[in-house]
Amino acid sequence: MDSVHAHQLASDLLDALQDPSRNHAVTVTQVQLDALERLVNHGVGTIRPRFEIGKNGAVADITIDLGQKGYLNLSAHVRESRNGFPPLALRIGSVRVPSKVTRWLLNRSVTALDLPPTPEARLDRFITRFVVSRPGQAVVNIQPDPELFEGLKAMAPHFSTSVDPALVRFYYNSLLDRDLRSGVGAKSFATFVNTTFRIVVQRSERRDPAAETRAALVALSMITLGPDAKNLARMVAPFDAPCVPEPSLFTLAGRTDLPKHFSLSAALSILFADRFSRAAGEWKELSDSAASGGTGFSFVDLMADRAGLRLGMAANGDLSLLREVQYGLAYVGDERLLPVAALRRLREGLSYKAFEEQYVSINDERYRQMIAQIDEELDRIPLYKATPKPDIG
């Protein structure tokens, strides 16, 4: 159930941050933080977080593996505040930064944005309250500030997304126009992919091939998911996201769920680290197997996840290989996107109990062998021979 708790926390925070019209009270529990901690530990191997809600505040300790350079330890201690931005003390390695110094640095950052009113008022208006309501539970009141977010993003472009919002909008509008003109009813996802990437191939002759590919894959995900893509759209353009209508019914290998798995995994691997995107797919399947209304654990869905993940990774990789991927997608069909015959041999609909009985966990060698078999089937398709292969486990 970890993925359920982590998803609930992420959803609550995203919903609050994306609605600047009012003040939001977001409840954070230790159970949710523990779930998030395990998800990050599994998905991002170089980062080890620990979160704890205490009597008078909360602590976050993060260890970052720097490889041959060793480790970097970071710590943040947030104390309760019933009126305004909470006191925040930091520790970077052995260097301690008291809460007053942290607040001064934050104020200086906001001052550099030249936003009215004073920086103190701006921060206190953003987080208006942080209290521990009971053991293992805290409540934070947030008033989203679009101007502050956009200003900080402009000051730190190295933290911004690798996707060009204007390019995403171009491809999204092109796809939407083609979708509306093609009428109602089920539509071939492969046909939409190849018509899109014929445009990508042409534009890449005189523009950045990687930027064109990334934008096209993200736009494909948005048009495939419909309203479910609203959070994805806001990650690309937080306060200028395109309107996302009801999705058309796209099919891949005779199924309507596989285009969503395929395109979302590609988009997430572009926007985030490939390890985190892989983990998100696995945790989603485990959530489905545990939830009463879930569809069960599906290796079929995971094959679509890994196929999309590999294409997303290729968009951030070697340019010569990327051009091969572009041409492959420009002339793709169902059999060239996924090995349809192999899909029919994979198990799905496994309950959480059935999954545990056969595979124990996603760290077990039997599970890892299944993922290796899925990758071998994908390798038989020419398109994926030019793509990086994500880690297993």
Score class of each variant (00 low, 15 high):
383 L>C: 06
347 R>F: 00
379 D>K: 03
384 Y>K: 02
345 R>L: 12
327 Y>W: 04
376 E>N: 09
367 Y>N: 06
348 E>M: 01
351 S>Q: 15
354 A>V: 11
363 N>L: 07
385 K>D: 06
368 R>T: 15
331 Y>N: 14
366 R>H: 09
327 Y>C: 00
329 L>G: 05
345 R>P: 06
339 P>A: 07
361 S>N: 06
329 L>V: 06
330 A>F: 11
382 P>W: 06
350 L>S: 07
347 R>K: 15
356 E>P: 00
372 A>R: 15
381 I>W: 01
378 L>W: 03
352 Y>L: 03
374 I>L: 15
382 P>F: 02
369 Q>G: 05
326 Q>F: 07
350 L>E: 02
364 D>S: 01
348 E>H: 13
382 P>D: 09
339 P>F: 04
377 E>W: 00
382 P>R: 02
375 D>Y: 14
338 L>W: 04
383 L>N: 03
332 V>H: 07
346 L>K: 00
370 M>Q: 15
348 E>G: 14
365 E>H: 14
349 G>A: 00
358 Q>T: 11
332 V>P: 02
334 D>G: 03
358 Q>W: 01
348 E>Y: 11
364 D>I: 09
382 P>G: 06
376 E>D: 13
352 Y>S: 07
337 L>Y: 01
349 G>P: 07
385 K>S: 12
382 P>A: 08
359 Y>I: 01
